[in-house]
Design a protein around this nucleic acid. Structure first.
Lengths: 206, 206
DNA sequence: TGTACATCAGTGAACGCGCGTTCACTGATGTAC
DNA sequence: TGTACATCAGTGAACGCGCGTTCACTGATGTAC
């Protein structure tokens, strides 16, 4: 994903979302206001309302990008694995990718899971969040076919896996884990979590 | 914990915190402002500053109560178990208690993990958060003594367990899990998560 | 090739809001003598 | 038992802030004829 400059052809709506993403990285959630984004984009504060129904609509649109980013990260990690990799190791890699992507974009990640801040009925938000979860369900189902918790309901199992990596990403990216465990390394906690969750799989190729 | 009426002897500082807790239950985080709490307590909006250094100090104080409540819930669940209960089943019960307490107080729970909203250097906040984690470490260590992941570093292991139940509590209490899995029941996800995390323990008394 | 018109993205002044914080004050309470 | 005084929790007016949203407007662009 090259960090392209805003092309002049690009619509203001697009540009505003990108400015918001940049602001999330540099200043965090509280900077995501209509006026601030407009200012940063060099446009009058009324302009964003030509492209979004209101503040929480814009935020939902930004959060939708977050889900897309998460999906893409998981997908990229998946595609990067050697051909013979087992489904369980793939699930493991998906978990790692989720946590890494979240920790790399703490502001965006926080916004995505703050339903009081955004319009959760926004169409693109629902679609991207939904398809990210479906992606996880597919990966989980493949692992189930390979013997991982074969009797569990796939969506519920996927939800449990999601919750676990999500908790890790969330606590880590807000500094709570590092605060409680001085000298902790994310890798260690991630390894333990995923090993506990998925079990060890001595016979499977990774 | 009886829902006692504000005793006239009670200090205003105490009363404000209790009003804040009530507001969190009924209206959520955004209601937690100095002016709103003062209004609700029937006191002028300047009064709270006689008891707290500022808004984020008050919020930290409220969050500290949250950690205490979480600790107490886990503790009560612990004490309620039959005498012969194994350490692994005790860890399981602690996880269940954590999630239940969090889901029962979604506003408070959300506030506790919003470091941008509160003064994380507040003394009581640090103390209560710290002692809640220490409580978990002790429970985890007991499970380790009974053969659960005996070689893991106790604090990191505790962090992993924490992250997992925390993620479940967090996603559930904000409706994300229920949104992704129509008809989902918290109990099911909780059961799967904890079973995956702790493994099954056929020989142990529950 | 021109002319009239509609469309609509972006402007910028204005409104009203609740907020945190400051500050001079009041008035009850307790203490020193 | 009185009197003077200090303390300090709570008051309420005031300040300045950034916010979301409204609204009449401008001016470029494209379309119909």
């Amino acid at each position: 994903m090259p960090d392209r400059e805003p092309a002049p052809s690009e619509s203001l709506g697009e540009r505003l979302v990108e400015v918001a993403l940049k602001l999330l990285e540099t200043e965090g959630i509280e900077a995501i206001t209509l006026r601030r984004i407009a200012r940063e984009a060099g446009v009058s504060h009324g302009a964003p309302l030509r492209h979004f129904a209101g503040l929480s609509d814009l935020r939902a649109e930004v959060a939708a990008r977050g889900f897309r980013l998460l999906s893409d990260s998981v997908d990229a990690a998946h595609r990067g694995l050697p051909a013979g990799t087992g489904p369980r190791a793939r699930l493991h890699a998906a978990g790692v990718a989720y946590v890494r992507a979240a920790v790399a974009h703490p502001g965006l990640f926080a916004l995505m899971f703050r339903p009081d801040c955004l319009d959760t009925s926004n169409e693109r938000f629902l679609r991207e969040a939904g398809s990210a979860f479906e992606q996880l369900v597919r990966i989980v189902q493949a692992a189930q076919d390979a013997g991982f918790e074969p009797d569990a309901e796939p969506r519920v199992l996927a939800g449990s896996v999601w919750a676990c990596v999500h908790g890790l990403a969330s606590l880590w990216s807000q500094g709570a884990l590092a605060g409680a465990i001085p000298g902790a390394r994310l890798e260690d906690a991630l390894d333990i979590s995923l090993r506990l969750l998925l079990g060890s799989e001595p016979g499977e190729k990774r």
